[in-house]
């Protein structure tokens, strides 16, 4: 039996106890941490990368949905809440399940079954894939009311906007709620290149390269946009693109 590492994020201590009591019956679930608010929960999850997250919705200052938006890698999530009004929203966040408090034990058992199925699927997939995305991987972007499912290889470039990143493809440029550094770690190194502090470009979309001053390069992208490559990155670029 595979061990399941779980984290509880819930502001009420008694509700956490109650949940732990339910979990006791499942020896395969190991609770590696609990938090009483979103910020503490975020740190806990970033540090331990649990497989499973039990997540309350109403919490002080930030709610459970905001926690999911902050995370780079979202564990399998089971919402636990006393209200049914968030059920639909929880599916937009790809929650695995939605349990109403007080939690029915049979319902809980079913949720754990689903978790195990999902984990098995993931284990199979992850043994086939590497950590990075490939040009053919699809990524899901949601910005405001609009959603896109886009092939990584079709993205022409990424640009820093504050703490977030703007994604450019075709005529669209939605915001991705991740930092440019986080995005860079996931991109296939084969096509994507960090041109400067603000931008990552898809080298397949470069139309033209000209030498610029101070040993820098200037790129013209397929859509006509110009990108200046920092000095350090220009050396790297020449190196990478040479025979």
């Amino acid at each position: 039996m595979n061990q399941i590492k779980a984290v509880i994020v819930e502001d009420s201590r008694l509700a956490r106890n109650e949940l732990k009591e339910l979990i006791k019956g499942y020896l395969q679930i190991e609770i590696i941490g609990e938090a009483e608010n979103v910020d503490d929960g975020y740190n806990l999850i970033e540090e331990h990368s649990p497989d499973l997250l039990f997540l309350d919705i109403n919490m002080p200052e930030k709610d459970g949905f905001e926690l999911l938006e902050m995370l780079d890698e979202v564990p399998i999530t089971i919402f636990t809440t006393a209200f049914d009004e968030y059920a639909i929203k929880s599916f937009e966040y790809n929650a695995l399940d939605y349990l109403l408090k007080p939690i029915n034990e049979k319902r809980f058992a079913k949720a754990i079954e689903k978790v195990e199925e999902k984990l098995n699927e993931r284990r199979e997939v992850s043994s086939e894939n590497t950590q990075r995305l490939t040009g053919n991987s699809q990524i899901f972007i949601k910005d405001g009311e609009k959603c896109w499912l886009i092939k990584v290889g079709d993205i022409s470039h990424f640009e820093i906007v504050g703490n977030y990143t703007r994604v450019f493809f075709q005529d669209e440029k939605p915001m991705l709620y991740k930092s440019l550094n986080q995005v860079e770690e996931k991109l296939p190194e084969k096509y994507f290149f960090r041109a400067n502090r603000q931008q990552i470009i898809n080298t397949n979309f470069i139309a033209n390269v000209v030498p610029w001053f101070n040993g820098k390069l200037k790129l013209t992208m397929a859509n006509g946009e110009e990108v200046e490559v920092s000095r350090r990155q220009s050396y790297l670029f020449k190196d990478r693109m040479s025979l």
């Binding site: 008694l14 509700a15 109650e18 009591e21 006393a82 109403l100 408090k101």
Partner: peptide, 15 residues
């Protein structure tokens, strides 16, 4: 109300 019921379930374990 449902939170209260759930909290009471949890409270039973200790008091």
């Amino acid at each position: 109300m449902f939170n209260s019921l759930n909290n009471i379930r949890g409270l039973m374990l200790e008091d």
